[in-house]
Structures are given as C-alpha cells and as structure tokens.
Design a protein around this nucleic acid. Structure first.
Length: 935
RNA sequence: GGGCGAUUAGCUCAGUUGGUUAGAGCGCCACGUUGACAUCGUGGAGGUCGGGGAUUCGAGCUCCUCAUCGCCCACCA
C-alpha cells in the first residue's frame, strides 16, 4: 500500500510521546467548566454517592490522600459513565488541635504565642492559614484528577456545619447524652488541653517499678524496711509499687484486695505517707490484684483512672499534685513548682534517704503520648464535656450485624464490633481556641447551664443576663462525624439531603475506623435514622519502598505533586490503584510508577497508530457489539475485548480495583498491542479487509479507553478526543469520554459471592442487564495455537542465531489443523519472519537438516540448511522430550488413580485425558524426529 | 494479655468460591533502527508458594501448629 499523505500528516500531528503536563491542566479545566463533575440529578437513575474524607487544612496532601482520591475517583468516574446519578462531595477539615498546633509553631518562630495575640487575633491568624492551605489542597485534588462536585464543597467550619454541630450538641444535651463532669482525662501539658482516648498513642517504654514503704501509723519509730533492720514477719510498714513516684505526693490511701490474707489485719488501719506526713487509710477494694507487685496499691484519685474509681467507692479526697502545665502544684509540698519528671527523681531520692525505698526493678511502662505533639500525657482529673456513647453504639453495632452496612475487607468487622462493644464515653471538650465553640453558657446569677442552638442573651433558668459562654471548643471529630449529612444541608430538609443521603461508599484508611467511621455510623443512625453509607471500603497506609511509614523526620516522604510533575497523574493513580489489595498497606515503588508512565505512553502510541494508520478509511467508530468480525484475529480480539469489559465491570462492582486495572493493562499491552495491531497491519493492506479492520481497531481502542478512563482519566480522554476528532459533535456517543457510556457488558453470572450485596444491587439495576454475548472460544483456541507456533519459531530462530530480518523457510505437518493453518499462513509468515509456509496434513518425507518443533500437536520444521548444529539440536530435543515426558507422567499418574477418576469432576478428568493424549502425541513426534536425526 | 495482617522468582507484588505447566512489573541474559512506541520489540533464564502436620482423588488457596516481621486494642499499680 502506498503512503497516504493524510495519514502521514495525521501521525505528525499527534506528538510521538504522551506529555502529561501539557494535557492534564487543560482537560481538567474543561471538564470542570463543562459541569461534568455534577450529578445528573436524574431521580430514576441509580444513585452513587461518596463523601470525600476531608483532608486536614494543616498542610499539603500526601500519598495517603492521593490513594483516597484515586480510588474514589475510580468509583465516581465508573458510575458516572454507567449513567448513575453520581455525586462526590469534596471538602476540608478545620482539624482543631492539629491546625492550632501548626499555627502556634509559626508564631513561636516569630517569637510570639497565642496568649500574646489573644483569642480573637489568634483565630483570625488561623483563618489566614486556612485560606492559604484550603485552596492549595483544592488545587492538589484537581491535579489528581478528582472529579468531585466543587460547587458542593464544604469546610467543617462553614456556617451550615456550625448549625449542624450546634443542633447535634443541643439535641444530645436535651436527650441526656451529653453531660459535663469531672473525670480522669488525658491531658497534654504542651497543648494545654484534654484529648480523647483515641488521641493518645501508647508506647511501651523501659522504666522502673519502684517499691516504696509507707510506715504504719503507731509504728513509725521502728525500723521500716528489712534493709533498715526490720525483722522478718514484723509488720511495721506497708510496701507498694509504682512507676510514677511523683504521684505519691497525692496519695490518699493504700488499697488491698479484700480476700488477701496477708493484709487482712491491716485493713482499717492507717499508714503515714512519707514526705507529706499524711495519715492515709488502708482500704479493701476488689479492683486490686493481689498477685501483682506487693498486692498493695497506692491510691491517687486525681491522677489515675482506677484510683479515681476506688476513690469514689471509698469517698477519698482527690489531691492534684501535677498541674496542667506539667509542673508540681502547691499540693506537692516541698516539690511544688518542679517539673513532673524532676519531681519524680526527687521523690525517689527522698525515699532512698529515708530508707523507705525497698527496690527499683526494670519495668516496661506503657507511656501515653499526645498524638499531635508527642508530649507525655498526664492523666488528670478535670471538668469536661462528654458524650454518653453506649446508647449510640448499640444501633451502630446493629447496622453491621443486620447487614445495613458492610465493611471491605470483612476482617475489619471484628475491629469495629470490638470497639463498639467496649465503648467508653467520649471527651469532646478541648481547651483550644480553634474550632466549634461549645454552645453552653454559664449563669453568673443562678449558676446553671444554658445550652442553645442560637447565642442566648439570658439564662434559660433564671433569666439573668449574666451569662458567659464556655471557653472551650469541641473535638474536631465532633464536626467530622456529621460529615455525610451536614454537607448535604442537614439540619435543614434540603433536596440534596433527600436525594443523596445515605451515601453509597465510604472509602477511607483503616486507621480512622474508630475516630471517624464508627462515629459517623452512630451519628447517621441517631440523627437520620439511617446508617450513612452502605459500604465501607478501607484501604491501607502508603509506605516507602522499605515499608517504613512516611514521615518528615525520616525524610522519606514522597510528595505526590512531584511524582505527578515527573511521571504524570495517570501513572501515579494507576500505580496506587494496582499496587495493593483492600486493607493492606502499600509499598510504593518509583519503578512501578515509571512502568505505568510507560503504559500511558504505550496507550498513546497504540492510539497514534490506530488513528493515524486508519485515517481516511471509512467505517467510522463502530460499537464493539455492532462490529462484524470476519477473520480469526477479528473474532478473537472482539471476543476478548467483550470478555474484558464484562470482567472489569464485575471487578469494579466488587471494588477490586487492583485486579480490574491489571486486567486492562494485560489486555491492552499483551493482546491488543502485541498481537492484534501486528495482525491488523497485515489486514489493512488487503482492500477487502481494510475498512472492517480499521473499524475493529477503533472499536476495541474505544472500548479499552472507556474501561481505563476511571483509572487513567487524562491520557484516555486526550486519546479519545483524537479518536473522535473527525466525527462531528452530534454524531459522537458523548461530548467527552468522562461522560461517555460504559461499554455494554454481559451482566449475568454475577450471583452470590462475597460482596454479594453491592454486586446484586449493581447487577439488578434496571435496563442494564444485557443479553449475553457469546465468547468465541474457537477463535480464542485457534489464535492460541498460532501464537504458540509463532513464538516457537521465533525462539528457534533466536537459538539458531538467525538474523532477525532473514526470512526462513517453514514446513508444517498439521494433521487436522492443516486447513486452518493454511488459511492463516500469512500470519506466520509475517509475524515469525518466514517464507510463505508450506502446510501439509502429513509429510511423506521429513525435511532433513531442519529444526523440528512440536507445538500443540503440530510439527514445525525449519530447514535451516547449514545453520543446524546436530549436537545442539539433539540436546534441545532431549530437553523437550523430558518436559513432555514429565507432563505425560503426571497425567498418567492421576488417571491411574481410580479415586481420582471416580471422584473428580468429569470435566477435570477429561482435561487430564486430553492432556495425556496431547503429551503422548508430542512425545511420539519428538522421538521420531530424534531417531531420524541421530540415525 | 488479647486480636489482626504479612511470609509466593534477585526486588516489589497479583493469584476471590481447591482442578491443566503458579503469573506480572522491574532487574538479569541474548538479539534487534521490519514505516505506533527504545517510555520500544523478540526470545530466554529464574519459584520445594516460611516450616511441620491434617482434610481431600487433588492444597499457594481449607483446618491445626510453630517461626519471623509488622500493626491494632488493653485502667494490673
């Protein structure tokens, strides 16, 4: 065929390599301006809704966000193409303590602090920060290709969300589910705030367990410890163990187990607390484990949760000796004003001096750290607001148990359940300035509390105007747990709320299942009566190539923006989506990203070929199910493409993104590009086949672009626009690939597997079920045989050192396959660089001086006169014989086992019989050839 | 103290209802400018699927057990 000038021009028009940077921004802006990210609003369509986990406005997006964005965008784009009423609500989180900490750090650099600024100016300063970083995060999401509806974007401190938070606080207060009380809470002396149990990171740290002696009242003059001369058996002191000696100063009792014989006589007596010289009772309490330490426990109700409980039962005083600033209080006597750890050393030294330190053992101490700043947590007694969780947790448990919600992967069911079953009240007040201010006012006149949705002007109880609002703000998660409905307009009854609540999939990291997922479930059920999402999909953490967590201090943080700059968004997204499995951590490797950058380029170039080489050939771009495949290759690729579409659809419905992506990759590269396009080059030269081949090339390309679009939105859209460049707008299936219809697939055979619920819901959607296509298994088998023959010939050429360009003669003895192979001989000729093959049923005389191969029962002879090394050839034949022999042996062994033949499924048995027959046939041919060659 | 996950080729990982010869990418070896692509093509080498046991005609996959690594939860001072 002579070169068509238009073809050449067209190929020149499309750049030789895909350049992501040039296309991404342009396409994204166009999509957004065109309104493609907005839901279609069709009340008859199936809904698909995701609430984006709002990133903290503390800084830049990291790879974890990129993973979230990629997976959610895959789902969103897929469902949009399916024609679903698809909504993705984006937003950002004000991240109370986290943001306050960053801004405070900024202030510190300027030599200032929040106290200097005052509350109002400090909050204004944080808003400045938020404005900068919020838009930065939005833009980073845009770079990631996030096709969220930005017109519905929300921030957790938006006016509407403030109203939601107030409504929830007031309602829970009215229901008695929010209360204010004195409890032991986790106090961070650096943040100067209480934090919830979830915000404490416990780390086992080597420390000491100190055994100290408290002399008994009335026996103070006697030698207190054995080391000080006390006699065995005499009871002059009571010994207790502690890891935090500084809290001794706040001790108000010693407790023993009531059934502990050793201490029976001491219960009811008093000990004298050294240093403080305080008279403290010895009490009996079930909470004490007689087997631990000395069996006697010092009781510090102001600094330990268990002691607090024991203190309540025995009406003990609470003496706070460690202050909110981490320094010892006035109540710590001689240690007042000292740092808490300084005081610890001092107390130990003092006990040692007094001869009251029995021993100090090495001991692993579970130390709580503030998850935000790392400071060691001080358990303190403090007046705080709490949410009573049990009444909220019970229905949330039920939602999972009764299947209104399910978690992928399933193993997180247990983690969710265990947490809810052991739920503890939630400390929601924070002594911070950045966040939702607690809507509670205290009356200076009557002392009562007024909780109100609107700012009140007078006390609700006595009408006094002497009211002041609580200084504290709410835990940041107190706004997050309302996210799926507060973003849709709740507490108002909005059209969005009616149409898009509950959401469909909640996709997030497994690390916030308690913080966020479980709490959203509780809030959704409590306030709207419906669990806020049908499916919870949990992904893992993104780690570095060595499997380490990415952290600034390790310096191993990979910035997604830099990755996108270098390799393109599609490469990053595809890598993130295909590198792991649900719930498991991902080790991100740059090599993989490079590989997927190459994949994007492969698509680009294959498309360049299809578009360029078929330019000017009529037939348009047919739908895959409408093409009329004629040749074997046509029938094969169309069958395979349709099977792929069905499989990818199934996998996406099952949320198996990785497997779906891999299948598209494999099909595109190893079937479409490596084989069909190569065959098509041949077919395009045949006038009779040109138009049909061009149509199939375009149809398959179109189909794959659609399947791949959710994963690699940019390169696919760009290519798709090139593909349709000559098709007038009204004749296109859609104005853009992003809104093009998903390939029609056969949707039966999807019943009953693990994610049945989602699947069935997807499958049974109206109007989508298709009459199934028939896989062309005959074509697939015949192509497989041709591929094997061609590959074996290529291999033999390589082995024999035949120059790549040299045509070699080939003779096939193909038995029953002869007719088929004769028909497709040009494929062998072209793809294996042979002379026109001679195809016979049988050969009267075997060619001499030829390499002989057996491929799928077909004898292949390459008469390589002068190039054949008989010794090498014999060795090669022996290797092949050995291989075929072991295959035959295996099958023979299985078939010789009567239990296999009786019990295995008939098709499995038949397969073994076929395998054995094939192996024996191959063996016979190989042996014959070997004999000839040797003889 | 409970619970969970991982362990498959030199490296990073797939492998979803147990069934032909366990796959991919990278790396490695050999060859290569056949008009889409060197971000490429062709071919090849490379694995007792962590150890042991059980169930089964048949186990990478199910069960038990052990080991190593990692994570989560936990008020024994």
């Amino acid at each position: 065929m002579t070169s068509d000038p238009t073809t050449l021009r067209r190929l020149d028009q499309i750049p030789k390599a895909y350049h992501p940077a040039e296309t991404e921004q342009r396409l994204y802006a166009w999509w957004e301006e065109s309104g493609y990210f907005r839901p279609n609003g069709n009340p008859d369509a199936k809904r698909f809704v995701i609430s984006m986990p709002p990133p903290n406005v503390t800084g830049a997006l990291h790879l974890g966000h990129a993973l979230t964005a990629s997976l959610e965008d895959i789902m969103i784009r897929y469902h949009r193409m399916r024609g679903d009423n698809t909504l993705w609500v984006p937003g950002e989180d004000h991240a109370g303590i986290a943001t306050q900490t960053v801004v405070e750090r900024e202030l510190a650099k300027e030599g200032s602090d929040r106290q200097q600024l005052g509350r109002e100016r400090f909050v204004e300063r944080v808003w400045e920060w938020v404005r900068t970083y919020k838009s930065r995060i939005q833009n980073q999401h845009r770079r990631l290709g996030v096709s969220a509806d930005w017109t519905r974007e929300r921030f957790t401190l938006d006016e509407g969300l403030v109203r939601a938070v107030r409504e929830v606080f007031a309602r829970l207060y009215e229901e008695g589910l929010i209360y204010r009380g004195e409890r032991i809470i986790n106090w961070c002396p650096r943040c100067m705030s209480s934090i919830s149990d979830l915000e404490v990171e416990v780390e086992n740290t080597p420390g000491k367990l100190y055994y100290v002696c408290y002399p008994l009242e009335g026996e103070a003059g006697l030698a207190p410890t054995p080391s000080a001369g006390a006699t065995e058996g005499e009871t002059r002191y009571i010994s207790v163990a502690t890891t935090r000696p500084e809290t001794i100063l706040g001790d108000v009792a010693v407790a023993v187990n009531p059934s502990d014989e050793r201490y029976r006589d001491l219960v009811g007596r008093y000990a004298i607390l050294p240093i403080m010289n305080r008279r403290i009772p010895i009490v009996a309490d079930e909470a004490v484990d007689a087997a631990f330490g000395t069996g006697a426990v010092k009781i510090t109700p102001a600094h330990d949760a268990t002691d607090f409980e024991i203190g309540n039962r025995h009406e003990l005083e609470r003496i706070q000796v460690v202050g909110f600033d981490g320094k010892m209080t006035e109540a710590a006597g001689p240690f007042a004003g000292q740092d808490r750890f300084e005081a610890r050393k001092g107390v130990v030294a003092e006990f040692e001096r007094l001869g009251l330190l029995d021993k100090a053992e090495d001991y692993e101490v579970p130390l709580g750290h503030c998850s935000r700043c790392g400071t060691i947590i001080e358990p303190l007694i403090s007046l705080q607001w709490f949410v009573k969780m049990l009444p909220l947790a019970t229905p949330a448990l039920g939602a999972l148990t009764y299947g209104q919600m399910h978690i992928v992967p399933e193993r997180f069911d247990k983690i969710y359940t265990d947490w809810l079953e052991n739920i503890r009240d939630w400390n929601i007040s924070r002594q911070l300035w950045w966040g939702h201010r607690i809507p509670a006012w205290y009356c200076g006149t009557c002392g009562q509390v007024t909780v109100s949705r609107e700012d009140p002007t007078a006390c609700a109880h006595c009408g006094s105007a002497e009211i002041v609002q609580d200084e504290d703000v709410l835990d940041t998660w107190f706004s997050s747990w309302l996210w799926p409905f507060s973003t849709l307009g709740w507490p108002d009854d909005t059209p969005d709320l009616r149409m898009y609540y509950p959401t469909t999939v909640m996709e997030t990291g497994y690390d916030i299942i308690f913080f966020w997922v479980a709490r959203m479930a509780m809030a959704g059920i409590h306030f709207l009566g419906v669990v806020p999402f049908e499916t919870v999909y949990l992904h893992g953490l993104v780690r570095d190539e060595q499997g380490r967590k990415m952290s600034k201090s390790l310096g191993n943080v990979i910035d997604p923006i830099e990755v996108m700059d270098q390799y393109g968004t599609d490469a990053l997204r595809f890598t993130l989506a295909t590198s792991g499995t649900p719930g498991n951590d991902i080790k991100l490797s740059i090599e993989r990203i490079i590989g997927n950058r190459n994949f994007a380029n492969k698509i680009w170039n294959a498309a360049r070929f299809v578009i360029g080489q078929t330019e000017g050939i009529g037939g348009g771009i047919p739908a895959l199910e409408a093409v009329q495949p004629k040749t074997l290759a046509d029938r094969w690729i169309v069958s395979r493409a349709q099977a792929l579409a069905a499989e990818v659809t199934r996998l996406l419905d099952e949320l198996q993104f990785g497997e779906a992506g891999r299948q598209i990759y494999d099909f595109f590269w190893s079937e479409f590009a490596d084989w069909y396009i190569e065959i098509a080059k041949l077919q395009l030269q045949d006038e009779a086949q040109r138009e049909r081949t061009a149509g199939i090339l375009r149809a398959v390309l179109d189909c794959v672009l659609r399947l791949l679009h959710p994963f690699m939105p940019f390169v696919t859209e760009e290519v798709w626009q090139h593909l349709y460049a000559d098709v007038p707008e009204p004749e296109r299936p859609a104005s853009a690939l992003i809104v093009a219809p998903w390939p029609r697939t056969e949707r039966a055979a999807e019943q009953g597997s693990r994610q049945g619920r989602v699947r069935r819901a997807e499958t049974l959607r109206s109007g989508q079920a298709q009459a199934g296509f028939q896989r062309d298994t005959a074509a697939e088998e015949e192509i497989a045989l041709l591929q094997e023959i061609i590959t074996r010939i290529r291999d033999a050429r390589n082995e024999a050192g035949v120059p790549p360009a040299k045509r070699v003669p080939v003779i096939l003895a193909a038995g029953p396959k002869a007719a088929m192979l004769r028909k497709h001989a040009p494929l062998i000729e072209q793809l294996a660089r042979t002379e026109p093959p001679r195809v016979e049923r049988m050969l009267a005389a075997k060619p001499q001086q030829a390499v002989a191969l057996v491929a799928g029962g077909v004898e292949v002879y390459l008469p390589l006169a002068g190039m054949l090394d008989v010794e090498k050839e014999l060795a090669r034949l022996d290797a092949e014989i050995a291989q075929a022999e072991s295959a035959a042996e295996r099958a023979r062994g299985m078939l010789a086992n009567p239990r296999f033949v009786e019990r295995a499924r008939p098709d499995v048995v038949q397969r073994e019989r076929d395998a054995l027959a094939a192996a024996e046939d191959t063996l016979a041919k190989l042996h014959a050839r070997r004999a000839e060659l040797a003889g």
